[in-house]
Write a protein that binds this DNA or RNA. Structure first.
Lengths: 126, 126
DNA sequence: TTGATTAACGCAACTAAGTTGCATTAAATT
DNA sequence: AATTTAATGCAACTTAGTTGCGTTAATCAA
């Protein structure tokens, strides 16, 4: 079950994401939220937001879970064949706004896909 | 620095992988190895094998690191644009033997890519 | 074959991400 | 205002992976 009540934590998490395509870990969110919030609360709220199709998650570098705002999802339909990019210098992660056409083997029922690209972002290229 | 000496742990890890495309976590490897080996040893050996380009790693479900034998890599060249597939029923992970053509944005210097597909494998499809 | 060198190892203690149980707080509803 | 229960905070926990350090064993040279 997703979000049921309007709370400060929920508002602040969504405010932290804003309209950007940046992906944030629970830790990053905690440091960005002004109001003192417990990490458990953040994890639970992120779960609920993901249930509702408001955010989506994926595994970034160092086996850390990242969350980002969804832009074309509902609680019934999740379409995330867009790649994510993580800069190995500044560690920022974000959604890339194009889709990767994935042809999957006929013998496999693929229900979800995650594409993570790593490298240097435009600000960190030497 | 990679592997320098031929040891039982190294042999057993490679034996556990065999020639298959299956990917294994450190935990799975530990349970497959007959001889009693410490987990630290396994983690360290996997690091060295990865340095040598003998195995490659990626982040699977639940933020667990998986390792698989490389088939076209050396210690200087790593080519892993092949996807990995994880069955959400039996949890097995493996390399898929085709490449995904990734067109990456010009402003980003992509040095590595990870593609993880999740779903039901041929044995777990209902 | 023996002795020296040091890579590889085992162990214990640690870190960091994420989870769980439970008592408390505060939205929403009556 | 009273009631209901979703959301919260806290402490304790789990699990993956790491680190420091003393010991073992692979390799190599005498």
């Amino acid at each position: 079950m997703g979000v049921q009540r309007k709370t400060k934590t929920g508002e602040q998490i969504l405010a932290a994401f804003g309209d950007s395509k940046e992906a944030l870990s629970a830790k990053m969110l905690l440091s960005r939220i002004e109001q003192r919030v417990n990490k458990t609360t953040v994890y639970r709220m992120l779960d609920k937001l993901e249930d509702d199709g408001v955010v989506h998650s994926f595994s970034g570098d160092g086996n850390v879970k990242y969350y980002a705002r969804c832009h074309a999802c509902s609680d019934t339909m999740h379409l995330h064949s867009h790649p994510h990019f993580q800069c190995v210098s500044c560690d920022k992660v974000r959604c890339l706004d194009f889709e990767v056409p994935l042809t999957t083997p006929l013998n496999l029922q693929v229900t979800e896909s995650q594409i993570l690209l790593k490298g240097h972002c435009e600000h960190c290229s030497s």
